[in-house]
Computed example of a mutant assay.
Amino acid sequence: MSECPHHRGHLIQERTRHKHRMDKALQDAQIKLSGVVSDLFGVSGRAMLDALVAGERHPRALAELAQGSLVRKKAALAEALTGQFEDHHARLLGVLLSIVDHLTAQINELDRLIVQTLEEVTTPHDGPAGTGTGPASDAVTAQALAERLDAVPGIGPATAQIILAEIGTDMRRFPSPEHLVSWAKLCPRTIQSGAKNSAGPVGQGNPWLKGALGEAANAAARTDTFLGARYRRIVKRRGHAKALVAVARSILVIAWHLINEPGASYEELGADWHQRHLNPARRTRDLVRQLQALGHQVNLEPATT
């Protein structure tokens, strides 16, 4: 099942390269459209590109094709579309547009095949950690598991499909979340030299799985959720890279539970979960230490009711 997501990833990369070539061709003709339009291949951007290929050269006429929020930027669009766009630029742009459309059609077909395959694949749930105690009626489709994963912050439909393609839908090969995390190489290594033990970097692992989890962690870090708060807590003392690895590990642990446990669903704990469950004595000690580091003398007195 992993071949389709892999091939789709290659096609998306190839389409992205051709889109960059189109922007470079426009820049060569002194057309700065990408500086005004956030999505060069959106409704407005694509209409302007098609008009350029069809022979329209007047900047104001091209700017009139703007739709939605770009209507307010017609003056900036007209200025960005003022350049030296010649016929040879139009021919090159037409070829690149046809390649992008062809790749988009192939990607859409792969999306359809992936969804169809996920709907055909069923996974019997044998109880927690594959104990063999669950009834056969608990079987669920891989598409249902993908929808469960889609509810996790940072995970979208495509990322959920990649996770299922790489780790499978049967968690009996991973008796616990720790086994899955270790297999994915998302836990620090212990390097032993004689009697000395030191922590080492994580291993290589599955590149497709780690890439998908990295993108999910990066997206979750920008959210006001439990995973976002976890990233912000760790990044202050460990740095961006290690914080992302920690969030990716948490996402993989959540995925293990959602796949392994029948009827499981994701429940958001909230961005303030750590504050609500923090040990008051430890929190007090940390705050006192911070004030002392700033040169203050702290005397604690219990508050009266």
Rank of each mutant, 00 (worst) to 15 (best):
L110R: 01
H296I: 03
T122A: 13
R238M: 07
P280T: 02
G203Q: 05
V53N: 14
R57N: 03
F174N: 06
I107C: 04
K74I: 00
E267D: 09
N260S: 15
L97F: 04
A47R: 15
G42W: 07
S198Y: 13
R17V: 00
V152P: 10
T141A: 15
L97D: 09
V202D: 05
A293R: 15
Q84K: 15
W256F: 10
H88W: 14
E79V: 07
G83H: 07
M1I: 05
L278C: 15
V152N: 12
L149E: 00
A129S: 12
L213I: 01
I259W: 04
S44C: 09
H274D: 11
R15G: 11
L26R: 03
T305D: 13
A248W: 07
A212R: 00
V43L: 14
L118K: 09
L118Q: 13
N299I: 10
A144E: 13
I163Y: 01
L97Q: 13
C4R: 05
H6M: 02
E267Q: 14
I163K: 02
R238G: 03
P280V: 02
Q106E: 01
L11M: 12
R112E: 00
F85E: 11
G68V: 06
S182P: 01
P128I: 09
T104F: 05
A248C: 04
Q30S: 13
D150T: 04
G200W: 10
S250H: 13
G68P: 02
E109H: 02
L186W: 10
H88L: 14
S265M: 09
E147D: 13
A303Y: 10
Q13T: 07
K73D: 06
L77E: 01
S44H: 09
R237Q: 03
I167H: 06
A139P: 04
K210W: 05
L81P: 03
H179R: 11
D87Q: 15
D224F: 11
Q106I: 02
L209Y: 01
E166D: 04
A151F: 06
L70G: 03
D101N: 13
V298S: 11
G130A: 09
P157G: 09
Y231A: 08
G295T: 11
H277E: 13
A151N: 12
R237A: 10
I107P: 06
Q275C: 09
K236Q: 14
V181E: 09
A25E: 14
V53W: 08
F174P: 03
G154L: 10
N197C: 14
G132P: 05
T284V: 03
E79F: 03
A248K: 05
G270A: 09
P5W: 00
R233M: 13
A216H: 04
T123E: 08
D272E: 15
W208F: 08
I191D: 14
L110K: 01
G9C: 01
W273A: 15
L244C: 08
N299M: 12
A195H: 11
L26V: 03
I107Q: 07
Q161R: 08
R249Y: 07
L103M: 13
V95Y: 10
G168E: 00
A221S: 15
L291G: 05
E56H: 07
S34F: 02
N206K: 10
P135A: 13
R282P: 04
E3S: 02
L103W: 08
I107S: 07
T190M: 15
